[in-house]
Amino acid sequence: MRRILVTGADGAIGRAATEGLADAGYSVTGLALSYQHPSKADRPLVGDACSSEDVAAALEDVDAVLHLAAIPHPSLGTPYEVFRTNATSTFNVLAQAAERGIDRVVIASSINAFGVPLNVHPVVPAYYPLDENVDTDITDAYSLSKSVDEQTARMAWRRWGTNVIALRFPLVKSRDQLVTIAERVAANPAAMAREGWAYLDLRDAVRAIIAALEVPLTGAHVIGLAADDILLDRSTMSLLSDYAPTVPLRQPVHGRGSLIDTTRARTLLKFSPVHSIHEEYQAV
């Protein structure tokens, strides 16, 4: 790979990924609706990932794609706007990449793809730790769009042979932002119980993205990500006892251990997080 297209290049993850890819020696084409921040893309383009023409122009001379463009929360548009934008942009990018013979696309999915965290009903996950096969129960357009994106990835592989990795991101922020959010969630831990108080440092998100772009992996894969610990400075078992006592626990969790099963990330991507909100550590 020499040149990578990053859609959503002016978003928080998009900016960090563009910088990380540029620092790793890649040429980066950025595609964003607008640029409100400086970009390290050597070819920054203004355009819409839902537009056939804009995506076609952005894909010129591209070897791989990182598709991050999306409306990232159901509150940021009408249900129709959220679903149409997210599902259409993903199909558009994957289909056009396939037409050009690009065989590696990484797309941003979400922990919300299984529907429970944003569910309007008082449902709980089928089990912890959450994995990529956990039962779905979807009641909002954003979670539906992420689930459909994962199906679109599988279709692209089956129809065109395009290798696609869908990364299920949890809460992704810089460490300082995570500290602020953790202070707020500590006052109401129930607010994040249905997503297992999961998070990922932005620096680790970039490392996971680069691993997904570079790994010699074929097929369509959904891969869950999270830090090795939870957001709150409490034992995981005490939080489960207080806020999710009826959810079955499939394997022991110690200390502040994560409630996300990241086996696929470790085995398929050879990726392990190295940053924690609680302490800086180096994974073995």
Rank of each mutant, 00 (worst) to 15 (best):
A97S: 14
R207Q: 08
R266W: 13
A32N: 04
L268G: 02
E214C: 03
H67P: 01
P72E: 07
A58C: 02
K173T: 09
D176K: 15
T139I: 00
A69M: 03
L259G: 01
A205L: 03
V106W: 06
G219S: 07
E19S: 14
A22Q: 11
A227P: 10
K173S: 09
P74R: 12
N119W: 05
L269F: 15
S276G: 11
P79L: 05
E195V: 15
I277P: 05
S241G: 12
T139P: 01
A205H: 01
A58S: 04
L231S: 04
D42E: 11
G101H: 09
E195Q: 15
Q177Y: 10
Y281S: 10
D61Q: 06
P125L: 05
E132H: 00
V55T: 00
S52I: 14
T218H: 14
G25S: 04
D10N: 15
R207M: 07
D61F: 08
L68K: 02
Q96E: 05
F271R: 02
V46L: 01
K270E: 13
I230D: 03
S235P: 06
L239K: 11
A191D: 08
V106E: 02
A244V: 09
S27K: 15
D54M: 02
T152I: 15
D131V: 00
S174N: 09
L269I: 11
A198V: 04
R104E: 07
R154N: 10
A226M: 06
P170G: 06
R264E: 05
A156F: 10
A182H: 09
Q151D: 10
E19D: 13
S109I: 10
D103N: 15
H67M: 05
L217V: 09
R159A: 11
V105M: 06
A166K: 08
T78H: 13
P44F: 04
L45P: 04
L130E: 00
L202Y: 05
A186K: 14
R234H: 15
L202H: 06
R266E: 07
T90H: 08
S174R: 10
A193C: 03
A193L: 07
Y199V: 13
I181Y: 10
T246H: 14
E214G: 13
L21P: 02
K270N: 11
Q177T: 14
H67G: 04
A70K: 01
A141Y: 01
R264I: 07
V253L: 06
I223N: 00
N86K: 14
V179P: 06
M237K: 10
Q177M: 12
S89V: 04
D140G: 03
Q96I: 06
V274F: 09
